[in-house]
Design a protein around this nucleic acid. Sequence first.
DNA 1: CAGTGGTCTAGACCACGTG
DNA 2: ACGTGGTCTAGACCACTGA
Lengths: 259, 259
Amino acid sequence: MREEPLHRYIADELRRQILDEHLVPGYQLPSEHELAQAFGASRGTVRQALNQLRGEGAIAARRGARWVVLAAPLVQSFSELLSFSAWARAEGHEPGGTEVELSRRRATQHDAETLNIAAGESIYRLLRVRTLSETPVMIERTTFIEPIGRLLVDLDLDSESIYEQLGDHGIVFARARHTIDAIPATAEDARLLDIPRRTPLLRQRRASTSQTGQPLEWSDDRYRGDVVAFVIDNTAMSGNLERLLAAEEDAESGESKLS
Amino acid sequence: MREEPLHRYIADELRRQILDEHLVPGYQLPSEHELAQAFGASRGTVRQALNQLRGEGAIAARRGARWVVLAAPLVQSFSELLSFSAWARAEGHEPGGTEVELSRRRATQHDAETLNIAAGESIYRLLRVRTLSETPVMIERTTFIEPIGRLLVDLDLDSESIYEQLGDHGIVFARARHTIDAIPATAEDARLLDIPRRTPLLRQRRASTSQTGQPLEWSDDRYRGDVVAFVIDNTAMSGNLERLLAAEEDAESGESKLS
DNA sequence: CAGTGGTCTAGACCACGTG
DNA sequence: ACGTGGTCTAGACCACTGA
């Protein structure tokens, strides 16, 4: 019945067995040849599935030896990554949001550079406080390019995921680059999250683009550091985490510099 | 002359062109057929290279249309990720370290669970303060399993990367899971980093395993939040970032809970 | 509708590990 | 020595994009 690529079916099946702990860390998988026969696929197709799981950090291979189970893979949903709502529901919480402000403005120099437009062009800025089970845990300050911002006006910004709703309009987010650091809560942050000033916040700055490389939005999200953490898997062959010196890009807030 | 897989040569070549900005975001790559001819490879080999670059967030594809350049990929060296020294040098800084303490202890309950050993077994704990150009920027509290810890005693822990030195002994780190959050500096943190108490720190807790899934170490690294940030790329097809609620695992430090 | 990427096959040779 | 994963080829069909 299913209209699904065979390599994905194989990957899903193996992932399910790992998550169900039928395959525990250290376990050796059957050889690619055996898997190919078992699934009625060619070896190339089996390898496509295995490489997918390797990218998720679930398994590893060494030449000459069989594939080995490393650990349960992360959930790995791209939508859960952009969307607070989708993530919260997957965690079993009731997501909420309070639209504090949606305004049309002219792009600052920073907006222009990040969104690849000219300074002074129209952009939309959205400020929301997101809640989990009534408790505010995150402040979201997002800047959208004009065509997307115009759509936002007609959307329900209070509770629904805007990314799901934008998807219905054919707006697809394909890629995002995240910069994560720790900063003290400003006076406004403290007021919105109902916490003391200078409480450590986990800040995630994000720039998202479409499938064709067109910048769609950038966002400055600040989480209560005592409630939310980020988890990243990476392996020797794949993974995309990098440390970075907090650069001079932030001339706005007086940052302390090295030497 | 070169003893290198063809698909890696192709990936390196295309990545170099993107980094050199010969290929700018939005640019359409030649078709897979054309690339195959240009590099004297089969289409399958070219696709292997393109999929590598897709995993790095550098390019994206849509059925029916050509591959599109998205952005410059991250450096993506696994060793730079584990190793403060390797990272610092790549950033053009002089890494330094002060070994504050290396001790042999009995595994706590948490050690035992993380390293998959029995509580009470021998482990080694290393505390280091790492510096960039003489300025302390990070505190590293690492716990190693006994066989690795024993090697540490003979290593130069003051300035060299222990991971590079362990590699010479055949100890290979293959996979790591990172949990990143923000916490206030404790009194000891503040003293070691020479900063005020409760300054926001970027905490990275890491668990590393070998190629066969054997846990090798876990670490609690705390960075000055105003100096170091983490950067992550992720795409709809690949990427491994996940938000997580700070769970009850940390019963040690009194964390505030949600409802 | 011509060209593109996505999927899949059947085979081949090699370098490496484990017994 | 044998089996394993890593690499590579040549060809096929399909779904989709874009002119």
